[in-house]
Design a binder for these strands. Sequence first.
DNA 1: CGCTATATTGAGCACTTGGTCAACAGCTCT
DNA 2: AGAGCTGTTGACCAAGTGCTCAATATAGCG
Lengths: 204, 204
Amino acid sequence: MPGPRIPEDQRRDELLAAAYRVATRDRLGGLTTRAVAKEAGVSNGLVFFHFTSREGLVLALLDRVLETTVLSPDTAGSDARSPVLQLLHAIEQDIEGLPENRDRVALLIDFWVMGTQHADVRTRIQKALGDYREAYVPLTSAAIESEPERYPGVTPESLAAVATGFVEGCALQVVMDPDRFDVPAYLTTLRALVLREAPGYALA
Amino acid sequence: MPGPRIPEDQRRDELLAAAYRVATRDRLGGLTTRAVAKEAGVSNGLVFFHFTSREGLVLALLDRVLETTVLSPDTAGSDARSPVLQLLHAIEQDIEGLPENRDRVALLIDFWVMGTQHADVRTRIQKALGDYREAYVPLTSAAIESEPERYPGVTPESLAAVATGFVEGCALQVVMDPDRFDVPAYLTTLRALVLREAPGYALA
DNA sequence: CGCTATATTGAGCACTTGGTCAACAGCTCT
DNA sequence: AGAGCTGTTGACCAAGTGCTCAATATAGCG
């Protein structure tokens, strides 16, 4: 009683879309082949036809999520401000974007902790986080060069690591306790901590 | 064929210890009642006798882990240094303590993400994190009072949230990629970022 | 000693999961 | 029209899970 046939690539996409829906709803633990099949309105066996195993499905989903997740700081609209302010601005933009993407962030964290035990997942996550860090290097590099005497022993890489680590910490908080996470207070505090001069800015 | 009898409290402790061993080895996903029973050299049914359900076991384990995890900053040996340096010192101590407790940190993060979906776990984790944050408030409070003009709009609570959030972000990194996580570089960068004066310190 | 309350066991149940597979339908091509 | 490849199905299997329960050994008490 097989149903309608559909070109392979298209079905794969449908299944991945269904998997994404299931995973953002029920998290990785709820991502069973049967749940995905049901979500896609398709038989269980078909999932294995297209992805060979559950692991294949999970990895394909991870790839898709990483592909469609923008993990590079937005440097647009930074105009003539100082490099440090530009860096701060990028961090703030990333943090501000977290709450509205809570589902996706939660899923990414699921993958992250899965990577702790699963080598393939770990590799991919590490690469994504590495890319994210690298994307910050131009910003941190410029910031350091603008006031080199202020950052003894600080490399663009280490500063990028701290910056992205900070964002990742915020991501954890957003997922865990979104109501408590007070974005404006966080950003105000961050600015005050980092800026030397008396801050003559208005919150964006 | 029942085996030797043991007072109830003692058995509970034995089972919890076994559960902790299993959970640090195989993580929460590997924490099955059978695995715990086997680890404790005991029958599967006994786990249910003492904990009623797997959920009971997990919650009891969480309570024990939280009880025996020191989540308050160590303010000893801070002598005559400035409040800001004391705060920095506390953060650094917490971060330095992460790598050697990787197993435990990984387990706590497992509980953390479990809390995303499980209300009882969430409550406990939120309380623990809240306590952790509060424990920082005296330090952040003193730091702000020492240079109030430098921290416009920053409350002791918001600064504590940022500080602990920073540590939590580091915890994620340590669990994920312990080799890449460069503690000294992180701390150097943090100091340079936060300190106004030229840093005349030696790394502890 | 015997009795009773209490740990303790292990077989077993119900259910879910990943995965396999023979059957079968639809499409294309000759 | 018939052959053949390719999607598709759903029944099925084996393994693992949480959990129950009758049976039973043990410790403590009279």
